[in-house]
């Protein structure tokens, strides 16, 4: 694309109604700031942290149990305090957030990929395929996702791959249903009929005509699912059924901190949990805004 074309597109975007509403919506702006902040911390955080909490050699037991810097006995170096092994909480949170985010995003990508394909197939080909896929989806939806994930993880055992498998198996349903619904309505439109009459192969029709229309709904759903998956993984890890100890996510940190909560060392568990909330809160604010903006137009 030429420079003028690119800047023309950008300018058009800035003038668009979407951007106008975005600027005027406090939740959208706050949400994106939070998300951006979280991403920056995750990517660049390790460059600035005091220590690498996975490097056992860098830990010193005498640093253990220090409260956050603003409380008596705290040290500026360990700004958010340390845990029972001398791990700096700030560093732990930074590293932990990386794990949480990666799992959340990867899980969403996988679940959406499978869900989209199944949804397209079900909606486009209809008939028996559709009936079977939707039956399974309905049955699965009548059970709470947390319980299914719990059960899967208890069978598969801990591990990042296993978590991703569980999240995918649990998460495909929403995508499939949404995509199927949209596919059904797009299918009836004339240009799809025209494409079929000409004899375009089905796969081509699906990808070139149906998919772009479904796109907006997928974006909205995916955004919200990242947040959901982060929470699901955190809960599983908190129960000891999620990530392994070697790759602690924020949920795992809370699990670790819970054991010392009753002794009054609140920062070891409450702070990682707070950060989880900040991440998911930002994502949800953004997701809500996107849903309000993109959906009515589709209808």
């Amino acid at each position: 694309m030429t420079d003028t074309a690119r800047s023309g597109r950008w300018r058009a975007f800035l003038k668009s109604e979407f951007f106008h509403n975005y600027r005027r919506s406090p939740s959208a702006v706050v949400g994106s700031i939070l998300v951006l902040f979280v991403l920056l911390v995750a990517v660049f955080g390790p460059l600035w942290t005091v220590q690498n909490p996975y490097n056992i050699a860098s830990l010193e037991l005498r640093d253990a149990y220090k409260p956050p810097a603003w409380i008596e006995d705290g040290e500026a170096r360990f700004f958010l305090g340390t845990d029972q092994q001398g791990r700096d909480m700030l560093s732990a949170i930074v590293y932990g957030s990386r794990v949480s985010l990666v799992i959340g995003v990867a899980g969403t990508l996988l679940a959406s990929a499978i869900g989209i394909v199944l949804g397209l197939v079900a909606g486009f080909f209809g008939g028996r395929t559709d009936a079977i896929i939707m039956r399974i989806a309905d049955i699965q939806l009548s059970f709470p996702t947390m319980l299914i994930a719990l059960f899967l993880m208890s069978v598969l055992g801990r591990g990042v791959t296993n978590i991703l498998i569980s999240l995918t198996l649990v998460g495909w349903v929403r995508f499939a249903r949404t995509v199927r619904g949209e596919t059904l309505s797009v299918k009836k439109r004339e240009y799809v009929e025209a494409a079929r009459v000409i004899g375009l192969p089905n796969v081509r029709i699906l990808f070139k005509h149906v998919l772009p229309n479904v796109f907006a709904s997928i974006i909205v759903l995916a955004t919200i699912q990242v947040g959901n998956f982060i929470l699901t993984e955190a809960t599983l890890s908190f129960l000891g059924l999620g990530v392994p100890i070697t790759r602690p996510s924020l949920g795992m940190l809370c699990n670790n901190g819970f054991t010392v909560l009753y002794s009054g060392l609140w920062w070891v568990s409450i702070l990682p949990g707070l950060y989880i909330m900040i991440i998911v809160f930002g994502i949800n604010l953004l997701g809500d805004f996107l849903r309000d903006e993109l959906n009515p137009k589709l209808k």
Binding site: S27, G227, L231, A234, T235, F238, G251, C254, F258, L261, S269, I270, G273, L274, I276, M277, V280, F281, I283, N284, L285, D288
Partner: peptide
């Protein structure tokens, strides 16, 4: 929105 963003175990701990 905050309510659905909070992990329930965290709420309990707080």
């Amino acid at each position: 929105i905050a309510g659905i963003s909070m992990p329930s175990f965290w709420v309990g701990m707080v």
